[in-house]
Design a protein around this nucleic acid. Structure first.
Lengths: 412, 412
DNA sequence: CGCCGCACGTTATACGTAACACGTCCGGCT
DNA sequence: AGCCGGACGTGTTACGTATAACGTGCGGCG
């Protein structure tokens, strides 16, 4: 007997579903009996009129009673435990091949799908990790996601993506209780402030693009941002530029701080080089404004603008054009990241290509390693300078060094 | 007596916890006694060298034994059920205010977080919905997400974002069993092919930007794309353009098909208007190529290029420049969507602004309505023509209609 | 005076799965 | 002959939560 017949199940179970199956449960469920009153169901007051869309087909799917492993067991003539073993692929010497096949057939016929909620509860693990990214810059992190998701999938993990709040205040932290639903977290340091609740839950946390000494992280994975900045500096110095301006992202983030620091250090070593820093938010408009400020400010006009981001560089391009300056003849402009934008503008941007997908892959590998208990050691990923049309020797320069393209820094 | 003392629990329960409470359960929990051997811990064989980052701090977080509602009950001197009632805010006449407060205090002191996996299993609902978007275009859907997540949060729901596969083949459908983890799905029709498994699970599905008659959807929510296209056509016709070219997104999608259809219809009504269609993938390079083809093709050169997307328009701008054509003097270019890119290029794009956040909000509201059992009726959201510098009367035009800016289509 | 119902709680399940701890044959070894 | 151990399974339990069902005293009403 398969225990499903047991008499102890005297008590009736709760009403499985609200009665309505097709008809009209509409209004009642709305501000229902006692069901968790929606904190406030304001709806921003859009009185809907003229229904332009939507349709409820005749057949309203009436809450299919999911088939459980016990159903499969019954159909295959075995115990529920056997089903679990077979479908879990650990039946080596525990179930006869014949019955195993019967189980698989029954599962297939019934369209059995294991209930993940139950499995998660039982196992205490979910094979799901969270990827937290800043909301601001989407293309780069979209690619990071792609790489991370690929690696995760290869290991049987799913990835939940969370573009960190902005409209959604941290007040309403969506992960207050999510620890039971997640095995680990991969997060950009730029979105780290959204992580307070997750930290306290003690989840493994691998941080991207963050200070290796960050106390919050179990491990960190980085791009070789400093190397990219040095390549950029060498490129411009090699072209003969000495008056530079840095359009610095006005974001409190480790990476951007590192860029500023590295750039400063690189120019300190170059005799006669001067650098002006101008902060700007990460938008085209802000880049335009900052570049305008720098190009029209007092003192000698910079001959090259290093922008922390391709978006800023696009703004700088516009500023130059409005001032009647040609790029790159009158002023050089560089970006960072190598987004699609970099080749959409005219001239195309000299920039630093960040291997976004590889970054995501490396981060996910590190996280999975941590979940396996091993320490995750990951070298900083190399980046690459991509010289395009937005940089050239400055107007007054002789023949700088004989190479117009100093992609290789040459003498250290 | 607080139920933890009950005699009926005669059977020995398995070792409740590995003995350690503070000391060292670390390794044991890892690949513990019999605990689920990791299916395969390959690590994809990247022999890590030169650890550039990562660090395992001295204290390895030893799998914190989560505090349960029973722990809270014990601390507060009540039963577990009472804890559930109090924290679930349904203790109106069931628990004395004093005890209720004690429960809340205990929960706070112990840092209790309800186990979502258990709650989900018990309730059969997760208060979580999935948002499926195409991987290609990120900025637009990032904004859709923002709107959707805001509405969801206001109703106590979480949103899981899934940029539909590409690198991740549909073969490895991440949602094969996720039905138990999700209450519903909001999906762009462009990503609908990733939904096979979800459909079969019978989850409520609200589709964005899709054919209202789509059988797969429980409901649909749309932008007034057709209206936008008509505004665009009226704008260009009003400026005097008669030779138009349509750079059509080479994507099999309802929205794009609708754009083509509507544009054709609009021009059919305009005497003397001719339209050429050129398909292109959604990238700058493809837009460049398609525009080049159209501008250098046989017959009279089009004076206006309607692009299905700002990205394509950026490519068209580049093509015109390379051919020595000025925009908008020699050729007008329009985009669609009004992405950040639209104002990053020179000249800035005349385009159709899609209210992405409102779109996400409307979609989520519709989905939540469906989950509440009500039919979701949503009017198509209005869109807005944004006239910028990339459009002007064609070279040979007299004085088109006296207004250079036909933002208001005039006669319907 | 008897009993209803309210205020206040507690007990007992069940959700669906994974896996531990037992059983039962049966062939083979000492 | 005794019995060990492998093959083949099944029974049972627990994961942590939400809630239906079941008790209690106690004040008031008929």
């Amino acid at each position: 007997m398969t225990s499903d017949k047991d008499p102890t199940r005297a008590h009736r179970e709760p009403p499985r579903r609200p009665p309505g199956e097709t008809g009209r449960p509409a209004a009642v469920a709305q501000a229902g009996p006692g069901a968790a009153p929606p904190p406030d169901a304001p709806g921003t007051s859009d009185e809907s009129s003229t229904p332009g869309t939507s349709a409820a087909p005749p057949t309203a799917p009436p809450a299919a009673p999911r088939t459980t492993s016990r159903d499969v067991a019954r159909a295959a003539g075995v115990s529920q435990a056997a089903v679990s073993l077979v479908l879990g692929d650990k039946w080596r010497g525990r179930v006869s091949p014949a019955k195993a096949e019967a189980v698989r057939a029954a599962a297939r016929d019934l369209g059995y799908r294991p209930n993940l909620a139950a499995r998660n509860l039982r196992m205490g693990r979910t094979r799901t990790v969270l990827l937290v990214v800043p909301a601001l810059t989407t293309e780069f992190y979209a690619r990071v996601y792609t790489g991370a998701a690929r690696v995760a999938a290869d290991h049987g993990f799913g990835v939940v993506l969370y573009p960190s709040p902005e409209g959604i205040g941290p007040a309403r932290d969506p992960f207050a209780s999510a620890a039971a639903t997640l095995d680990g977290v991969l997060a950009s340091s730029m979105a780290a402030d959204a992580l307070t609740a997750l930290r306290t839950a003690g989840l493994p946390l691998v941080m991207l693009d963050s200070d290796p000494d960050d106390e919050r992280a179990t491990a960190t994975v980085n791009l070789d941002i400093a190397g990219g900045v040095r390549q950029l500096a060498a490129h411009l110095l090699g072209l003969g530029h000495r008056h530079l301006a840095h359009l610095a992202a006005d974001v409190d983030s480790w990476t951007f701080a590192l860029r500023a620091r590295t750039l400063g250090a690189a120019l300190d070593e170059a005799p006669g080089a001067v650098l002006r820093r101008e902060p700007a938010e990460l938008s085209v408009a802000a880049g335009l404004h900052a570049a305008h400020t720098v190009l029209t400010g007092p003192g000698p006009r910079p001959t090259a603008l290093l922008c922390d981001d391709d978006i800023l560089a696009a703004g700088a391009l516009k500023a130059a054009r409005r001032l009647g300056l040609r790029v790159p003849e009158d002023v050089s402009v560089t970006g960072f990241d190598d987004l699609a934008l970099a080749v959409a503008v005219e001239p195309e941007l000299t920039t630093v290509r960040l291997p976004a997908e590889e970054f995501g892959e490396a981060g996910m590998r590190a996280l999975l390693a941590v979940l396996d208990g091993g320490p995750a050691a990951v070298p900083a990923l190399p980046v690459e300078l991509v010289a395009r049309g937005s940089t050239a020797p400055p107007a007054g320069a002789g023949i700088p060094s004989r190479t117009g393209n100093a992609a290789r820094p040459g003498g250290r």
